[in-house]
Amino acid sequence: MAAPAGLLARAALALFPEKPEKALMWVLVIILAPVALLALFFAGPIVIWERVPIASPEQVIIYVNAAKVVSESTKSPCDPGVTVDWQPLLAIDAVRLNQDFSKANPGRAEDLARMFIEKAGTCQVCDGGDPPT
C-alpha cells in the first residue's frame, strides 16, 4: 500500500503541465487575477466619483428644462427647430463647476444651451396657409 503523502504528491504532479512555461503562466494568473480584481474593486468607485456627474434630480431638472426652453424657442411654422439635448449640458457644467451643482441655476443652464444653436437663415411667418418656399 502506498503512503497517502506519496499518493497526494503524484496527484499534484499530474495536475501540473509538462512544460514549465505553462506552469509559470498558471502561477502568474493565479497571483495576478486577485490583484487585478482588487484594483478594479477600489479604483472603480474612485473613477466614477471623479468622472460621472453626480447631481440631484432637482439639479438635473434645471438642465432638462433649459434644453426644452431653448429647443422650443427655435421652432417656427416653417421649421421644426433644433433639439438641444440636456445630457451634454449637464456634462459640460459638471466640468465647469467641478461637480459642485449647488452653483447651477436656470439662467446659467439656458445660456449654456443657447451655445448649442446657431442662427442660419430666416423664416417668413406663415398665417394658416402653405409655408413659403
Rank of each mutant, 00 (worst) to 15 (best):
L37Y: 10
N105Q: 09
L97P: 00
V29N: 08
D111Y: 00
A94V: 00
C78M: 07
A43D: 12
A94H: 15
L40T: 01
F16D: 15
A67I: 09
L38P: 00
A104Q: 07
A66R: 09
D100W: 12
L89E: 05
K75C: 06
D111K: 11
A39G: 09
R114H: 13
S76G: 08
P34L: 06
E72K: 07
A66H: 03
D100T: 00
P77A: 04
V47W: 01
L89M: 07
L7G: 10
A104V: 02
I62R: 05
N65E: 15
G6T: 11
A12L: 15
S102M: 06
E110K: 15
L8K: 11
M115S: 12
K22G: 09
A11E: 14
K103T: 01
V52A: 11
A55R: 05
A3M: 09
L89W: 00
P17M: 11
Y63P: 01
A11G: 06
A55K: 01
P53M: 07
K103Q: 15
M25S: 14
N98Q: 12
A5H: 04
V82R: 03
C78L: 04
P77C: 05
E58G: 12
A11R: 14
F101N: 09
A23V: 13
I48P: 00
R108V: 04
L32S: 05
S71N: 09
V47Q: 04
V64Q: 14
S73P: 00
V27A: 14
S71C: 06
C126P: 04
E18N: 03
I92R: 05
A66K: 06
M25P: 04
E58F: 12
L7P: 00
K19Y: 03
I92Q: 11
K75P: 02
V60D: 12
A109E: 06
G128N: 15
V125I: 13
D130C: 04
N65K: 08
L15F: 10
E50P: 01
V35F: 13
P45G: 12
N105I: 04
W49T: 12
G107T: 12
E21G: 09
P80I: 01
L7H: 06
A23D: 08
S102G: 13
P106V: 13
V35T: 03
P77S: 02
L37R: 03
A23F: 13
A113F: 02
L90Y: 04
P77T: 05
K75F: 05
P20Q: 10
P80W: 00
S71T: 15
Q124P: 10
V70Y: 10
W86I: 01
K22I: 14
L28D: 08
D85Y: 08
G44S: 11
S73Y: 01
V35C: 09
C78W: 00
A39P: 07
F42Q: 10
V27L: 14
D111A: 14
L13W: 12
A14K: 04
L13C: 10
F101C: 10
F42D: 05
A91S: 11
C78N: 02
I46R: 07
K119F: 01
M115A: 06
E50C: 08
R114Y: 13
I48K: 13
V70R: 07
V84T: 11
A94K: 04
I62V: 09
R96N: 12
A43N: 04
G6V: 08
V64H: 05
L24K: 14
L13S: 14
R51S: 05
L90C: 02
K75R: 14
L89R: 04
A14M: 09
A94G: 15
V69I: 07
P80S: 08
